[in-house]
Design a protein around this nucleic acid. Structure first.
Lengths: 106, 106
DNA sequence: CAAATAATTAACTAATATGTTAATTGCTTA
DNA sequence: TAAGCAATTAACATATTAGTTAATTATTTG
């Protein structure tokens, strides 16, 4: 199931760090591996887990494989999960309340 | 680190199901265990992981231990993570944009 | 206080995750 | 086409996770 893959993928600090790097710019597998102490094959495995969860996508260009973020999928999953678990959650709900208030004001 | 504990705790379907149950009402350890096929000790372990991540809290009342949700912590963590990773994320960003628009209108 | 119920902790097993190095595949270019 | 670099896959070792049953702790009540 999609949500299982996503939470499994997020349950790893190096994988979350990879997402953070990719949030700034696309990077090749090698550039990503260069930012970690672990071996390239280990990073490649992390990338494949992130890709299977469809949190990132990859594209080969010549010799290199470029990775980039699938940000919509991540945000959608996390927010819908948060809403489901805590229908009266704070920060999201606060935005909604302000939004309603602002609308009524006008 | 807090975020590690939280994502680790969320990387388990039974634990996410426990959170969903607790989003409706507080429950005793036994009532929660009764909703799963696994043994009570296994559920107790899951509960302790959720509590260590401060996603739930527990309170003993006589013979029973009642569990309930710490929803603020969950929502705050997930949304701040989502913002950090995808600054231009869709659903959250849309709310913000609508909010800004509504404000400017008045 | 003894018995019964709720819950957790202990001890153990099986499965899974994560890293390593070696081998393989894909692409470029001399 | 052979050599070289990028990346992934294979094979393996180790650590962690998640479940089991048995034992223990806490609380109520006859």
């Amino acid at each position: 199931m999609a949500i299982d893959l996503i939470f499994e993928a997020l349950a790893s600090r190096p994988r979350r760090e990879i997402l953070a790097y990719l949030s700034k710019q696309e990077l090749t597998a090698g550039e990503i591996a260069g930012r970690f102490a672990m071996s390239a094959p280990a990073v490649s495995r992390h990338l494949s887990i992130l890709e299977t969860a469809s949190l990132v996508k990859s594209e080969r260009r010549g010799q290199y494989v470029y990775y980039s973020l699938n940000s919509d999928n991540l945000v959608n999953t996390l927010t819908s999960f948060a809403f489901e678990i805590c229908p009266r959650g704070r920060p999201l709900k606060r935005e909604s309340r302000q939004l309603r208030a602002a609308k009524h004001k006008s």
